[in-house]
């Protein structure tokens, strides 16, 4: 079975929000000119993801999913409100961002000074809603898993934006062709970084590792654990994360 740690590590590296899914690219490109602002926005994204995903998880499991209303009234077991999920998730994200902004402003002015200007930006950051939608799609079995996923995704996003900001700070001293300066070169660098991150996902060498990792394919008693899991393979392939493949 997929462990919580597994989900966490996967969310940082192989399923990195920026490099694997391109979520939150707009603010990633706009706010990565200096490392300082990048750290601020990155921290704000981690924070908001960790708060919103568990809330949306509860919402999904106790309100929206088919059968989710059973705890209120057994007769409502057939109600399926999942068509409302987009709108609910968005409302939750936007209102939590607003709420957090107010609370931080009131109780931690210093933190507000550092994060404040980024919070409104975050409401429209696709990675936040993306986090909620992935959570829904992957059906995490506990709220702990969902939180681990959100923390991992946030950290992955943080790493990505800080890395590009550091590169952009340095590239100022390089002789980049004029038309490519700024946005153009940032795109290309992000592409190259994306390729580097792809090596985490074991694109081509999944084949050999699968044999090791998935010996139990034909065992009917363990049906539940044999989902094909690209992340798992990758970790086996990279070979530096033995913790993750406990079961083999």
């Amino acid at each position: 079975m997929e462990t919580t740690l597994d989900i966490f590590i996967k969310a940082i590296f192989s399923e990195n929000m920026i490099f694997a899914y391109f979520l939150g690219m707009c603010s990633y490109l706009a706010v990565s000119k200096t490392v300082k602002t990048a750290v601020g926005l990155g921290a704000a994204v981690i924070f908001v993801l960790v708060v919103t995903v568990p809330v949306n998880y509860l919402l999904e499991n106790y309100l929206l999913k088919e059968g989710a209303l059973e705890w209120l009234n057994p007769a409502w077991v057939d109600i399926d409100l999942s068509f409302l999920s987009f709108i609910m998730f968005i409302a939750v994200v936007a209102s939590i961002v607003q709420l957090v902004e107010m609370l931080v402003e009131k109780f931690a002015p210093a933190l507000y000074g550092a994060l404040g200007i980024f919070l409104p930006l975050i409401a429209v950051n696709c990675s936040i809603l993306g986090g909620a939608l992935f959570m829904q799609d992957r059906q995490y079995s506990t709220i702990g898993d969902a939180t681990a996923f959100s923390l991992g995704s946030g950290i992955g996003w943080f790493i990505a934006i800080v890395a590009i900001a550091a590169i952009r700070e340095k590239i100022r001293y390089s002789n980049v062709p004029a038309p490519l300066r700024g946005l153009g070169i940032t795109f290309i660098i992000t592409g190259l970084m994306g390729m580097a991150f792809m090596s985490f996902s074991g694109i081509k060498y999944a084949d050999d590792t699968k044999k090791k990792a998935k010996v139990n394919v034909a065992d009917p008693n363990t049906n539940s654990s044999i989902t094909v899991d690209p992340g798992n393979t990758l970790n086996a392939a990279v070979g530096n994360t033995n913790i993750i493949n406990k079961e083999d």
Partner: peptide
Amino acid sequence: LPPMALIIVGIIIWVQRSRNKSLI
């Protein structure tokens, strides 16, 4: 693979800005 999309967009930006210097 997705990273190539970034690089292609980067090149399109390059071409566009070489043609219209005011965007540099």
